[in-house]
Amino acid sequence: MIWDLHCHISNVEGTTPDEKIAAMMTYADRMGVERMVFYMGTNFSTDPDPEEFRRQNDEVLQALSHWHHRAFGFAYLNPKYPEACLQEIDRCIVNGPMVGIKLWVALRCNDPRLDEIIHRCAELKAVIFQHTWLKSNGNLEGESTPMDMAVLAARHPDTPLICGHTGGDWEQGIRAIRVHKNVSVDLAGSEPTAGFVEMAVRELGAERVIYGSDVGGRSFSTQLAKVYGAKISNVEKKLILGKNLRRMMEPILRIKGVKP
């Protein structure tokens, strides 16, 4: 059972969301990926206004419409617009099929404007995914570091959070969030460097490590290899490849009446 936390309907054949997700599923079938979580549209926007993030979410909703048996969606939000974010959560999650949120690079996640959004997601049991990177050649202005994630996690110690990309520089990212037991890490979207998963499991425990790919910019091959090739037990691999994400999503799926 492989569940992929981190997928986009971009960098894949097709001109419409429907065509792109269908092409994506062909590759997923070859690699044995059973369920996928999609967010953001066919063209990324780093600092979208509410109209733009609604448009991007509409693309994902369209892509999901024929694939509810295999695909989930997270609503893309820009926390610079907290009120619009809450409305979008209502539209996409409360009244729509989505089951979580994706926060990207518009605003660093230690900003207090995130708090109301986090509280609302906690009420709904919605999954919260925050992109993080620690780039030695410089982050974007609004791009969160794993250290920013640690600040957010400390303010919301009872809310599960996902640290996207494990901070990119995973050796520092793992250390940055290690003490915050409510934070899990996403393996997606970095080169398949050896030792990543071994360190994550050693320092966090396998229960806090979640497989994701970042397709289509990345491949299933390079990202699944991080888990397949790691010197960890098969039990730990199964947790990372699907069981952890499924456990995290079960509360909201149960509320929505969706059978995992």
């Binding site: 690699m31 080169e191 460097t193 050896a194 299933f220 290899a225 090739g229």
Partner: peptide
């Protein structure tokens, strides 16, 4: 690019692309 990269990363590409 082994052992800097995980060996499986490039082996699996032949499964992903037919």
């Amino acid at each position: 690019h082994f052992p800097f990269f995980i060996l499986e990363a490039n082996l699996l590409k032949f499964q992903e692309s037919e």
